[in-house]
């Protein structure tokens, strides 16, 4: 089920995926901390739900675990995901 990684910004809506890699260097330390506190980390399941923005490109709302969070596209671009459900215990990215 290995699929090509893609950015969270490009993930189709309501397509289950999991986080492959987060480019922490592209985020400020406090943004990184907040994302981690939201439960976003390598291996977490994620699903894009809504793309916002009526006047210009808006933020993205996505489900992480059982939580819905909103982030700007710049943050989402720092997150690489792979589609498919997370398989607990399996090594990621193999």
């Amino acid at each position: 089920m290995s699929v090509l990684p893609l950015r969270l910004t490009d993930l189709p809506l309501r397509q289950p995926a999991y986080v492959d890699l987060i480019d922490w260097a592209a985020l400020t330390p406090s943004e990184g901390q907040r994302l981690r506190e939201f439960g976003l980390c390598e291996g977490a399941s994620v699903e894009a739900l809504h793309h916002g923005g009526f006047l210009g490109k808006g933020p993205i709302a996505c489900k992480v675990g059982r939580m819905t969070i909103a982030m700007r596209r710049a943050h989402a671009a720092a997150i690489t995901v792979r589609t498919g459900p997370e398989t607990p215990g399996s090594e990621l990215g193999a």
């Binding site: 943004e31 709302a61 819905t68 969070i69 909103a70 982030m71 700007r72 943050h75």
Partner: peptide, 8 residues
Amino acid sequence: SSGFLMEM
């Protein structure tokens, strides 16, 4: 400009 990170 700062980001927008928020729980819904």
